[in-house]
Amino acid sequence: MHHFLEPHKYPGKLFIVEGIDGSGKSTQVQLLKKWLESKGMSVFFTEWNSSDLVKETTKEGKKKKILTPTTFSLLHASDLSSRLYNYIVPPLKAGMVVLADRYVYTAFARDVVRGVHPQWVRKLYNFAVRPDVGFYFRVPLDTAIDRILRARSKIKYYEAGMDIKLSTNIVESFRLFQGKILKEYDGLVKEYGLSVVDATLEIDEQQEIVRGIIEKALEGYSVKRRTYVRRQKVLRRGTAVPTS
């Protein structure tokens, strides 16, 4: 098992992005992926709460509104555990780059605001692989809310933290909930040495900062090349022909 506070020993690299909804982190991670791939690297991308194992259960729990702060937290931990085993650790062992959109810090911020014990959730996630770089896209609350309200027709119940009853108005609840999460993230930046990116900058300016930090983190990393062609079939007499 991993110990989250210790660096991992795999030949690959794990880079993660964090931030509240509307911080633009997903855009940045996609641009980063493209850039790394253009440099010939083999990159694997994974998202928070995306494993087949618990996705349906979480969806149903949300729909029926039966999730408690603790079951919500444990379901997300199960999801990460399953993704580590199936999708994250294998590429890291194979020396690849793994990019994760949200990681344990989402739980440390969000679940604590929901009411779970800060120490409990940190110990719970001790199985997680420590990222090589963790980015935090810091954005003022109003900017994030504007972006969210413009991009979507509706804010969801759990996303707005309606389950912890901050307000009966969903937009107001969302504002209060995300505001509390922002505070938690600020603490996490210091606690875990996250790299802060000012998410009010232009997209390309942010990306430049991100690439600069990644470039440094990749010093001494031996690139696992992407395979552009399929493996060659070796014929009996030793001549190789490329498969179409």
Partner: peptide, 8 residues
């Protein structure tokens, strides 16, 4: 499903 995930 690995054992750690089962535990969770």
């Amino acid at each position: 499903v690995d054992r750690l995930t089962f535990s969770l």
